[in-house]
Amino acid sequence: MSVLWISILIILGVAAFLCLFRIFRGPTIADRMVGVDIMGILFVGITAITGILYNLSFLVDIAIALVLISFVGTLALAKYLERRTLDD
């Protein structure tokens, strides 16, 4: 059954590579930020699938932390894009 999980990981890796293409190519800085946000969410899925592939439940803990860190990071990037400081 591990062939199924590895093929799912390959498909998710292709999706992350497409986000990387957008990060390199994006015309404005907003496009690059969108790419970083989407790639963070894709890495959450990759981490959880890896956890179930090797039967390691702590990798899903890492996925939870990755969701929250990606949320805070994207909010900080959006504030920076809006040219405001972090405390108003």
Binding site: T28, I29, A30, M33, V34, D37, T74, L77, A78, K79, Y80, L81, E82, R83
Partner: peptide, 8 residues
Amino acid sequence: LSRGSLRF
């Protein structure tokens, strides 16, 4: 992100 990019 969308609000920030509109104001950007």
